[in-house]
């Protein structure tokens, strides 16, 4: 029975059948760790993030890292060619990944990435949106909700101001961006379910 890891945070979806489950997991972990560290480095640069309690910094990062990675790596999903580039640099078509066992999550990620990329945001806009994704006061385990909420509101105001300035004739972009937040939550939940299934397997 062949096994595949269809998450693009892998070097390749193919798993060496000679390797133990532990070795496969270790390799996967080595592969995505640098990306997670980048998310932490990004968070540290958000003005006000380091002023939150360490507990809340960790809670926000634990809950939001997947969503930040989806936004940061949206360009790995080539909507035109319907393929995904893995960290190893190789591209795999959606059909190939489907035969390897990818399901609704991958299709939903494609839909999300297509809509996000279609907004044509600048690097600065994308970066501020990513900060809004990360600093969400309704994540579980937040001890000082008021502080996180205050920072979240400041970031949302800054995002609205930037989008309004850059796209004066496209007022719907800001609303569309905010509507991406529940979409990301939904992807996050689907991803957690797949991780659970993987671990049980």
């Amino acid at each position: 029975s062949r096994m595949f890891l269809v998450c693009p945070m892998n070097m390749s979806p193919r798993v060496d059948p000679q390797k133990s489950g532990h070795e496969v997991w270790e390799e996967f972990s080595r592969s995505f760790t640098p990306a997670v560290r980048e998310v932490v480095e990004f968070a540290k640069k958000i003005p006000g993030f380091r002023e939150l309690s360490q507990h809340d910094q960790v809670s926000l990062l634990k809950a939001g890292t997947f969503e930040v990675l989806v936004v940061r790596f949206a360009s790995l999903f080539d909507v035109t060619e319907r393929c995904v580039t893995f960290l190893g640099g190789n591209k795999y078509s959606v059909d190939a990944l489907r035969t390897m066992g990818s399901g609704d999550l991958l299709s939903s990620m494609f839909d999300f990435c297509e809509k996000l990329m279609n907004l044509g945001l600048s690097e600065e806009e994308m970066s501020l949106f990513t900060a809004v994704v990360l600093v969400s006061a309704d994540r579980s385990g937040i001890e000082n909700v008021n502080s996180v909420e205050a920072l979240q509101e400041t970031l949302i105001r800054a995002l609205r101001s930037l989008i309004t300035r850059n796209h004066p004739n496209e007022s719907a972009i800001f609303t569309k961006l905010l509507l991406k937040l529940p979409d990301l939550r939904s992807l996050n939940n689907m991803h957690s379910e797949q991780l659970l299934a993987f671990k049980v397997h």
Partner: peptide, 27 residues
Amino acid sequence: FSDPASNLGLEDIIRKALMGNLEERQE
């Protein structure tokens, strides 16, 4: 399995990355 982030070892990576910065600041 109720906490996927901990399952993945994410919390450990996150804490180390955050603490690294604290140590730098102390220096």
